[in-house]
Structures are given as C-alpha cells and as structure tokens.
C-alpha cells in the first residue's frame, strides 16, 4: 500500500464522506446528545445531563409492546419475502432455460420497484377493503356471508403491503448469488447420484446464503425503520417503534423521542451486525 494509493483512495471517497459526515454522523450525534438532556416540554432544550429519558423508556411497558409488534412484522416479512424470493429466483436461474427470457422475467419482477412504494401500498385498499374486490368476490360466490374484516386495516394488510414492497430486495441478491453457482457442479452432483433434494440442500441453499443475508439486511432495516406502512395499512390501530417517537416529535418531546430513536438505531445496527457475521458482504459484492 503506497502513500499514493491511499491518497487517491481517500480523494475518491471524499465526496461520499462530505455527505455522510454532515448528514449521517452528525445527525446521529445530535440525536444522541438530545437524548441526554432535559426539555421544558415545549420544544426547548436545557443542556442538563440526565438519564431520565432512557429510564422512562426502559420502565415503560409500552416500549416492550412496540418492539414486540415491530419485531413480529419484521419476522413475518422476512419469512414471506425470503421464501417467495428464494423460489422466484430459483425458478428464474435453474428452470428458465433461455437466458434472454430469464432476464426478461427478472425485469418484470423489478419494474414495480422503480415505481412509488406508497402508491403500491394504497393500491391494496380497493382489493382488501370491506367492499373490496376480494370480499365482494367471495360473497358473490357465496363462500362467506359477512365481509372479512381482517383483510384491511389489520396486521394482515400490513404484512401484505410489506411483502409486496420488499420481496424484490430478496429476489435480486438471491438471483445474483444463484446465478454464480457453476452449473457443472450441479451436473457433477447428479452424476455422482445426488437426488435433487440433496442438490438443493447441499449446493443451492448454502450457496444462496449470502444473497438471503443481503436481502435480510434490506428487509430488516426497512421494516424496523418504517412507520408509514404500519400507520396507513393498520388503519392507525397498530403502533410501531418509529410511529411512537414520531408522535413524540409531533408534541415537541424531543429528548424522549431521541432516546427511543437511539435505542432503535442500536437494535437495528445489532441485527444487521448479526446478519453480517454470516456473510462478508464486501467480499460478496465486490468479487
């Protein structure tokens, strides 16, 4: 490593750092600082050190319930997106024989990602609503007499919206890691008498692990940091960690909001760090 190479490297990441330091590092430090001060309750901050904001947070039952609700959504979304993402990617890589068709179908999966998530979320309302397509359809056929209430403005619709938005974050990395599997390895395994179940278990699953991990990082951080989907799709009935401190901000309780924000950030970072232990993300994406 010559000094020249270091200089060039640092010069090239300077623009990145000029964004990350004022708009990521400093804001997090500001939130951290605010979480340790007192407030007059009207948005004013007193520079007096206190741990009350954290004490209040950890003593409250609400905190636990909020985290339980948010983690439940995260786990359910992870489960559905990874299962759907895995099989979609598997189909495209191992079952579609023409490369061109596989790329075309892959593009079909990715196009909605480029459109507004919010619009895609509200698009479930005419389907799942009390007088929505599914309810009227089922009633029309005579399967149900009363409209199913749980379809919209419920935990169900929240998970549907998350899965709808985020499955793409699983498909792309899993597709990438599966595309790198050497087909001749699979052939060799078949020649050696492996069943297709063996191949799935011993070749494809282990080699897609990094893709699943990368997808899990995206899904976890997005669901944990979201409050928009929960708020709209649960009809306001379900709170989330972010939603709760957003309300604190609304009533100018900055220090309590900041304490909650710091705890959430730590939780998300720990979860991501746990996933990163499974996979060396930098090696995976640069190789």
């Amino acid at each position: 490593m010559s000094p020249g190479r270091n200089l060039v490297g640092w010069l090239n990441v300077t623009p990145l750092l000029l964004v990350l330091i004022p708009f990521f590092v400093i804001p997090i430090c500001v939130v951290l600082a605010v979480s340790f001060v007192e407030t007059d309750g009207f948005g004013g901050l007193y520079p007096v050190f206190t741990l009350d904001n954290y004490a209040m947070l950890f003593r409250s039952d609400l905190t636990l319930r909020l985290y339980a609700a948010t983690l439940k959504f995260t786990l359910l979304t992870l489960l559905f997106t990874s299962v759907i993402g895995f099989w979609v990617a598997y189909f495209l890589v191992f079952h579609v024989r023409s490369k061109l068709i596989a790329m075309g179908l892959f593009l079909v999966c990715t196009v909605p990602f480029w459109t507004s998530n919010i619009v895609r979320m509200i698009s479930w309302i005419p389907l799942l609503g009390k007088e929505g397509l599914i309810n009227t359809g089922l009633q029309g056929v005579g399967i149900i007499n009363e409209p199913l209430e749980f379809l919209l403005f419920s935990s169900f619709s929240v998970v549907v919206a998350y899965v709808h938005q985020l499955t793409i974050f699983m498909i792309v990395p899993i597709f990438n890691s599966m595309a790198r599997i050497d087909k001749s390895v699979v052939e060799a395994a078949l020649d050696a008498g492996a069943s297709r179940l063996d191949i799935m278990r011993m070749i494809i699953l282990p080699m897609s692990r990094s893709g699943i991990a990368l997808g899990a990082i995206f899904v976890t951080s997005i669901v944990m940091g979201d409050f928009f989907v929960v708020k709209v799709m649960s009809g306001g009935g379900t709170a989330s960690v972010v939603g709760a401190f957003y309300e604190d901000v609304g009533v100018l309780q900055y220090p309590t909001a900041a304490a909650s924000a710091i705890v959430l950030t730590l939780v998300v970072m720990l979860l991501v760090a746990a996933i990163l232990r499974v996979v060396d993300i930098r090696k995976e994406i640069t190789q």
Binding site: F24, V34, T220, A261, I281
Partner: peptide
Amino acid sequence: FWGDTAVFYLMIASLVAPGLVLGIGIGIG
C-alpha cells in the same frame, strides 16, 4: 486503501439507519 473498511461500514450504517431518526437529527441540527 488505509481505512477503507471503516468507510465501507460507515456507508452500510448510513444505509440501514432508520430514516426518521436521521431526519429528526438533521432537523434539530
């Protein structure tokens, strides 16, 4: 280059940090 891993993980941290937390931090700042 020297310190590249630190910059890389700083970038990942910025990617996964809850958006509203950053927003609030920037707003207060």
